[in-house]
């Protein structure tokens, strides 16, 4: 508040200001105490791991103090960039992210429009309640339902294919089925839940506007296209931007569960590779380097989208 006067402040004033701040801090001491546990946890488990930045350039040995590990420069990065897994993991990570965020983003929106425009209240309620039930299932359950339904022999899909005289499909043996299984099960699990936010925005669309359009002879489809969608456009844009920031965050768990030895060419993503080389193979330095590589790309995307968002819409994350 007093910053503009900073240059002209006398020693006395400075001392006063300092005293005031100390006083204010002292007055709020309980509040700092309230925050202390959370701050400690974050310092240890969120800021602590940022020393991974150092580990990526070291030959890490367990039990050796972090700064006494031998520094190896960019060796881990070079090894990753020149290994065959670099191309595979980056390609899979990028393609799956694109499928999830670009191809699939309209699904919840479409679902919300359907629900909002349904005149049959009972059906609307049932469909909505059913549609977000899968969101509560754990990733283990979802993947195992997929495994059971798509099993090469005893899965429902293959039973039906055989009934109709077709050849059965080895969903887990053939790499080309990884993307569809991953993305479709994702839609199945999350579309209903993601639609809630659009439904909220739609419920705020002015009814008068729509009634007026009705009287002027606009049909339902016209109302959707010319009134509802433009009205919720800000929500759509914000969600799109938020998603962009999370673009390449896929997470290791679901993919690890879907992975088999046979489909690894399409199912190895950066996250699963970090998990395997780091936790499975104990190559801590190397795995950290791979993880850092991904984190830096993510951070870059967040900053970039944030800047674009700020320019275009006044909405920004920070």
């Amino acid at each position: 508040m007093r910053k503009q006067k900073r240059g002209k402040r006398t020693a006395q004033e400075k001392a006063n200001a300092r005293k005031n701040i100390t006083k204010a801090i002292w007055r709020h001491r309980e509040l700092y105490l309230f925050m202390l546990p959370a701050i400690i946890v974050l310092l240890i488990f969120s800021y602590g791991p940022m020393y991974g930045l150092v580990m990526a350039f070291q030959d890490v040995k367990i039990g050796v103090p972090i700064l006494q590990n031998k520094f190896v420069g960019l060796r881990h990065f070079n090894r990753f960039f020149s290994s065959m897994w670099f191309g595979v993991t980056v390609r899979n990570t990028v393609l799956i992210s694109l499928l999830m965020h670009i191809v699939c983003w309209p699904v919840p929106l479409f679902l919300a429009l359907l629900l909002h425009n349904c005149v049959n209240t009972k059906l609307k309620k049932t469909a909505q309640n059913f549609s977000y039930l899968p969101h509560l299932l754990s990733v283990v359950i979802v993947v195992n339902i997929v495994r059971l339904l798509c099993d090469g022999q005893s899965g429902l899909i293959n039973i039906l294919l055989r009934e109709f005289g077709k050849d059965s499909i080895s969903f887990f043996g053939d790499p080309k089925w990884v993307y569809p299984m991953f993305v479709l099960s994702g839609i199945w699990q999350n579309a209903g839940y993601d639609a809630i936010i659009y439904l909220g925005a739609l419920s705020a669309v002015s009814e008068e506007l729509e009634d007026a359009a009705r009287i002027d002879g606009a049909g339902k489809l016209k109302c959707i296209w010319h009134i509802q969608i433009p009205c919720i456009l800000p929500t759509i844009v914000i969600l799109l931007i938020l998603n962009m920031g999370q673009m390449f965050v896929i997470g290791a768990d679901k993919m690890l569960l879907l992975q088999t030895d046979l489909n690894i060419a399409r199912s190895e993503i950066i996250d699963t590779y970090v998990y395997k080389t780091g936790i499975g193979g104990s190559q801590y330095g190397f795995a950290s380097a791979v993880g850092i590589f991904q984190n830096i790309i993510n951070l870059g995307l967040v900053v970039l989208t944030n800047r674009i968002a700020k320019r275009l819409t006044d909405v920004s994350l920070f």
């Binding site: 701050i39 791991p49 020393y51 930045l53 996250d271 970090v274 850092i292 951070l299």
Partner: peptide, 19 residues
């Protein structure tokens, strides 16, 4: 800000595991 930063940048799975 200190809290929000952790939403967007993390050291990753391995260093956390080691901690």
């Amino acid at each position: 800000t200190m809290f929000v930063i952790t939403m967007y940048f993390s050291g990753g799975m391995i260093p956390k595991f080691l901690i």
